[in-house]
Design a protein around this nucleic acid. Structure first.
Length: 262
DNA sequence: AAGAATGTTATGTA
DNA sequence: CTACATAACATTCT
């Protein structure tokens, strides 16, 4: 489910619902019992997103780190949450609001050093105001690795996953197998802009829609599953009709139009 | 109902 | 040292 847009959206929503309040936490499965005990009743000050990582800052310097991984998911309830069921990893409650967490790769307490170490290995996040795209360019323009692998590398740029990789490269007509060092600075700038716009749209819409209303022939909000991307999970390119090829790259499926990307 | 999926990390191999 | 492959782990949807 989650690329960077999901994480930033969650940070915003959870701040709105829980920040400034005493938060009751529990982990019905006992998977996070230790941390939950420590966190319970603390005031949540702030929720920050960095790439695909979330940081919940509580008073007394308590810091909860969450990473959704491939399957992780939040469920938010603004009234009467359901009884905890199945593998519910963490529940946070304040007032009428409840945030449930399932299936995360990480849900753990951290100290400032852990956090610093983690942030040190993340590249600039296009969704953050403090992002410095030049840091990404420095890595990319020297690398012989394919741009498709570089885009997915969170230490190069933080927040892009498999869908945005396919879609951003497609919009810029760049083939995923091109070496990073073959990109011009102008191409990189355009790619960064595209990624930034796509992620921002994702935060707003709450889902990944990269096809424009013009290309779709109807409002983006009306697009069904399978109509929202140009090449990702498509058999024919939705901008030129050319064949889409699929292959394995950096352990994930890469998608590109054989006609308009090179 | 097996298999795929919007992810990361640790470890092994060349 | 770097690059790449593989396995492991999480859960839901088709």
């Amino acid at each position: 489910m989650p690329e960077g847009h999901t994480i930033h959206r969650a940070a915003r929503r959870h701040t709105e619902l829980l920040a400034g309040q005493q938060v009751h936490t529990e982990s019905p499965q006992g998977r996070f019992a230790e941390g939950a005990d420590v966190l319970d009743g603390h005031r949540l000050l702030q929720v920050d997103a960095h790439g695909k990582h979330l940081f919940y800052r509580f008073d007394d310097d308590l810091l909860l780190h969450v990473h959704l991984g491939l399957f992780g998911r939040f469920n938010v309830y603004t009234a009467d949450p359901p009884e905890p069921r199945g593998a519910l990893r963490l529940r946070m409650q304040a007032g009428d609001a409840t945030v449930d967490l399932r299936g995360p790769t990480a849900c753990e307490l951290m100290d400032a050093d852990d956090e610093a170490r983690l942030l040190a290995r993340l590249g600039p996040d296009p969704l953050r105001g403090d992002a410095d795209p030049e840091r990404a360019w420095q890595r990319i323009h020297k690398s012989t690795r394919p741009i498709g692998a570089l885009l997915m590398d969170q230490s190069v740029m933080a927040g892009v996953g498999n869908v945005y990789r396919a879609e951003a490269l497609h919009v810029q007509r760049i083939h995923p197998e091109r070496e990073g060092r073959s990109l011009t600075h102008a191409e990189f700038d355009a790619l960064w802009d595209t990624v930034t716009t796509m992620l921002g749209d994702g935060v707003r819409a709450g889902r990944i829609i990269t096809v424009t209303a013009e290309d779709a022939g109807k409002p983006r909000s009306r697009l069904k599953r399978g109509e929202r991307t140009y090449v990702y999970k498509q058999s024919a390119c939705r901008s030129c009709g050319g064949a889409v090829s699929v292959w394995d790259m950096a352990g994930r499926r890469a998608w590109a139009c054989t006609a308009c990307q090179r």
